[in-house]
Amino acid sequence: MKKFRKEFLITLLIGLISASATCQITASSVSDTNSKIERKSKKKKRKKFKLPEIDLSHWSVTTPEVNEKGGATTIAPPEILNYAKDARLLPYMYNDSTSGALVFYSFPSEATTANTKYTRSELREQMVPGDNNTNWTFAQGGIMKGKLAMEEVSRDADGNYHKVIIMQIHGRLTNEQRDMIGQKDNNAPPVLKIYWDKGKIRVKTKTLKNISLNEPEILYKEAWDDDEGFKFEQEVGFGKFTLEVKVSDGKMVVVLNNSEYKVYENVHMRKWGVFENYFKAGNYFQTRDEGAFARVKFYELEVSH
């Protein structure tokens, strides 16, 4: 009997020790699992907030906001660097911290710029921050590359999406050229316009009406005409895509998604070398329809010379 009680007590003790160890292991396992879940949760929360990595120190921006003179509002460096807190810019240029994009919003307003009836929320390259007088020629060359997406755009009365110019190369007269032809400003035609057009990317450039022209006749806007345009095969729709524009002496190349290329290398590009130029990027909205609007997202944007 004594032997039976002794064996029973030993068995009971072993059982208690085993149960205690199992509880500790289970508790430890639960604790580890909870800790992992908490770490993952914190990691997810941290990932929710992204900011676009776009250096704005060499860009000014023009918006649909009417300024005190009745024209479009333009903000240059260093003020543009405070865009996230600038009340003048907040409706038109703001961060989407979920996707990590810089959003440009535009709609038809009375805030138009010279030589156009359309409004824009668009960046203008400034090689010297705050100065529009320092620009580049095709001989000097330049590259602009961006990753972007059409976030939202309205439709016309026929149900077609409105067009938006998302990138440009704009020509500019030097002060000497301006005075030579008696023009009141330094504006020259845009040699490149890249459109988001019904979910596809369309490119337009300029051609000389008479290829034998030289200065000063070649400096007049009337000397140039629009080409017939070119549309890339790929449909980008509302998804992300990349665009790259590469300019060199007498040559311009537009690249979509590193896979489709349009090359301009002809007499018109060589003759364009007479002008200075600057890059533009953003949302240059191409309609005056009432109630129309567009939002364009830029995830990346960089320029080099």
Rank of each mutant, 00 (worst) to 15 (best):
L90D: 11
F279I: 12
S31V: 00
C23P: 00
E300M: 03
K221G: 05
L256F: 06
P78F: 10
N160W: 01
E79L: 14
N186K: 11
T11A: 15
E244P: 00
K193Q: 11
I14E: 05
K145W: 01
P108W: 07
E290L: 08
V245A: 14
V245R: 03
T119I: 05
G142D: 09
W196Y: 14
L219M: 14
H268A: 06
V247M: 13
I37A: 07
L9Q: 09
P129C: 09
Y105H: 14
D226Q: 02
N82G: 10
N187Q: 11
V254M: 03
D249M: 01
L56C: 01
R46N: 06
T207E: 15
L56F: 14
T63I: 06
F104D: 11
V263C: 02
E125W: 08
M127F: 08
R46D: 06
P108S: 10
F107Y: 15
W136K: 10
T287S: 14
Y220V: 01
N210M: 03
Y284C: 00
T113G: 11
M269S: 04
G282S: 13
M1R: 13
P189M: 06
S259M: 05
V103D: 04
T119D: 07
L51Y: 13
T11Q: 13
A76F: 12
I165C: 05
P52I: 11
G141F: 06
D96H: 07
E7D: 11
C23L: 14
N266V: 03
N115S: 15
E265I: 00
I80A: 01
K48H: 00
N277D: 04
A27I: 12
E215S: 14
S109Q: 08
T207R: 10
V128H: 02
R124V: 06
P190S: 15
K200M: 12
V247E: 04
N34M: 09
K40Q: 01
W59T: 00
P77W: 05
L90F: 07
E217S: 15
T287F: 04
L192S: 01
H305M: 08
K2C: 13
S154D: 07
P77M: 06
L256K: 10
V153A: 03
S41R: 06
K221E: 05
K221Y: 05
L56W: 02
V267I: 14
H305Q: 13
N210G: 04
G159I: 09
R178V: 09
V255W: 00
E260G: 01
K246C: 01
L51I: 11
T22V: 13
M127D: 02
S20R: 03
